[in-house]
Design a protein around this nucleic acid. Structure first.
Lengths: 206, 206
DNA sequence: GTCTATATTTTGATAGAC
DNA sequence: GTCTATCAAAATATAGAC
């Protein structure tokens, strides 16, 4: 890819993350690149096209990342763990892009939006199938598969909202905490202990 | 409060939720109210003041709601359960406002922003103290208190992003699922079972 | 590929009549 | 309290020189 096109993309990612898509102007981006705003239009047809490019390639990479993690195992609990780790670590490592991808959908044109939604749904379906499989095998308690998948995904996605790359905790440390939080939440199921069937009530006495 | 001021607020909430703060113009809001845009400025000093009013009163109500829920119990596990339920149900019941409050902070002036941040931190601290207390009493496994509090709060906050009031599940149903997901995640702690101390490893055989 | 210059719209906000 | 009229600034995007 041409050097300037890449520069524009990176500057846009920084600004969209910092100020938001609508609050960022083409002038802002041009200033960040050290060029005139008209020059942006040589590389991108519109501001919206620039946003779409960023969001689409992020989504693409997210799917590729998940596929790689999942290829490592065939056992459902391990696959779920791998899926969660893939999701969390990708969101923390590429915080700016994933933040944009999950918060600026309203900036897209209808056509571009539906392309993204389609990809996002395919991604979510992988998690939902993992939960379903786990429930079928008795690894997880039965429950609202979609709600749980949203819970898992939004929980981890939200990591991109507060995570500080220069903070006390590494990506790996946070990923591990989340991984276990999610896996425990899933395994224990969603019944309140005191109301659950007896065989689910054997909690370790702490 | 004067009727029109309330109308403007409600229309603004609808539009900010639907299109976002920056993508919504004063003209849009005026059109929704059936008045001229200049009339908005009789009720609010600026567009930003309107945003702040919405966010501040939402935050205020959120704190009041939590206080009421917490007043019901003194036992730490019950208090945490109540806190999660308060947080989730408030976010689902007042979806639009909480969505705005958690996604449009960048629209505020520095002064207004710091007021909101202060309130948000106070709110988060209540959860962190509950976790801390639970850990001290041995109810929860020791862990990263702040990370866990963020996990709990952002998980539930994210509910406001996908929840459909006219959907299959009621606020109560979702609140219960989340409540148990979070409580289990906390109780089980954040150590991987296979690596955890033996007394934490007695999982119910499913 | 990047520039200068500009067209066109729209924005948030104000002034002053009623 | 709401209106009409208007300001000044900023937005996205285009045309055409170099």
């Amino acid at each position: 890819m041409a050097a300037m096109k890449e520069t524009i993309t990176q500057v846009a990612i920084d600004l969209f993350f910092q100020k938001g898509y609508f609050a960022t102007s083409i002038s802002d981006i041009a200033r960040g690149c050290g060029i005139q705003k008209a020059s942006i239009y040589y590389h991108f047809a519109s501001k919206e096209a620039l946003l779409f490019t960023i969001m689409y390639s992020t989504m693409q990479d997210l799917l590729t990342c998940l596929d790689r993690y999942l290829a490592r195992s065939t056992e459902v609990a391990e696959r779920m763990r791998a899926a969660v780790r893939s999701h969390v670590s990708f969101h923390l490592e590429r915080q700016k892009e994933t933040f944009i991808a999950s918060s600026e959908l309203r900036g897209l044109s209808p056509d571009h939006l539906s392309i993204l939604i389609e990809k996002r749904d395919a991604y979510e379906r992988i998690f939902q199938e993992l939960i379903h499989e786990g429930v079928a095998q008795g690894v997880y308690a039965a429950g609202e598969v979609k709600i749980l998948s949203y819970a898992i995904l939004t929980l981890c996605t939200a990591g991109a909202f507060w995570f500080r790359p220069d903070g006390r905790l590494s990506v790996d440390a946070v990923a591990t905490i989340y991984e276990n939080f999610v896996l425990n939440g899933l395994t224990a199921g969603q019944t309140r202990w005191s109301l659950a069937p007896a065989h689910l009530n054997q909690r370790p006495a702490l």
